[in-house]
Nucleic acid binder design. Structure first.
Lengths: 208, 208
DNA sequence: TTCTTGTCACCTAGGTGTTAATAT
DNA sequence: ATATTAACACCTAGGTGACAAGAA
């Protein structure tokens, strides 16, 4: 079945002799084939870090870890051809340091170091799929994506690189609008962080 | 396989001791199950309209029609459960009166009347699926969504209703910001046109 | 002292009708 | 005359770091 959203407003326009495009809720049932998931580091205990004299050092050990949440890409489940059609952006993934977070954000501890991981999971149609759970996914790790979670930048050079490379921080650039101090120009002609809701090194608390 | 987007920038950040979230292109192959499609009126010849003394009248007949394009919802193909998860918005659908349009927009003729149609198409896995093409879709029509394509509003009351009901036109409202002249308040607490790229009665030419 | 939170001005990105200029 | 285009101010929506105030 299909329902028309904002039916009353549609009719109000229609009475005057016009119209536009609608929101619909369409229905059917079926199985799921593929899912893309992104997770933070495994829920092991991890050391605490501190920034001193321009360097990050281990400042403690084995702090209790935060809840091990994962982020499901909003397009999942979808089949392989769908994922291939365009770049898969995780710009809806958000971080928080609020242990009681209620928005499904990934919970991290400030001043701790993390390694993002990507899992591509095969949604097994078999009834006893749990038995094969070990072979039904493939993981990817890019070590250059490691990061330390903070509530405010510790390293001023990170701040400067962020300002230089993120279009949303253009208001803090000092030089000519057509030249950047650090990153070469071509990097910014591609959408970089413009679609990211994350502040790379900065945790945001819940708004509640 | 998986590739990391913006690898150079990642490494530049990483050298300073930090990181963030990435864009990825993930690969796999599979079949397609369901698709949602939206189309304008059928490519028959249609009459021309004119607005005179507050009414639309037929002002000609059987103009040659425009190319009969259809708009595939960007989430398609997807299975039923996926479509059910949230309202299916066609806010990426755009109209144009440019017969040479190269952006895949729906081509319409100004001063002509149209009936939007929604088709839910079953992607048949059988090899001889063309034989069953007649039974592999279901169409939906909401007559209250009919509209006349124009390049500028003809009916001033349409303009006023648009201003009153579309949050993006809030700058043209005259009364208190907390009261609207025509539509009752509750209508606007829901996202209405805020996600639509269409000017309900106005065609946009290509930017080329 | 060190870390965290909330507010702010400044951006990107793009959806509105208005208006003046142009085309038909 | 009428229809179309392009530039504009004004919005929504939300991603930035700066900064001041607060918390641990």
């Amino acid at each position: 079945t299909v329902q028309l959203e904002m039916k009353a407003l549609w009719e109000e326009f229609n009475q005057l002799g016009t119209e536009m495009i609608s929101w619909l809720r369409v229905g059917a049932t079926d199985e799921v084939p593929w899912a893309a998931v992104r997770a933070p580091s495994p829920p092991h205990s991890v050391p605490r870090y501190a920034f001193h004299s321009s360097a990050w050092l281990v400042a403690g050990k084995a702090d209790p870890t935060t809840p091990g949440r994962v982020h499901f890409h909003p397009d999942s489940p979808a089949k392989g051809a769908q994922w291939m059609r365009q770049i898969v952006s995780f710009d809806k993934l958000k971080l928080t340091n609020n242990l009681l977070d209620d928005n499904g954000h990934i919970i991290l501890s400030s001043m701790h170091r993390y390694q993002p991981r990507l899992h591509v999971v095969f949604v097994d149609p078999r009834k006893d799929s749990e038995r094969y759970a070990q072979e039904n996914f493939k993981s990817f790790i890019f070590t250059e994506t490691q990061f330390t979670a903070v509530t405010a930048y510790q390293n001023h050079r990170i701040t400067q690189l962020k300002i230089a490379s993120n279009p949303f921080a253009k208001g803090f650039r000092e030089s000519d609008p057509d030249s950047w101090p650090i990153s070469p120009r071509p990097l910014l002609s591609v959408p970089t962080w413009s679609r990211s809701s994350l502040r790379p090194c900065v945790l945001k608390g819940s708004t509640e």
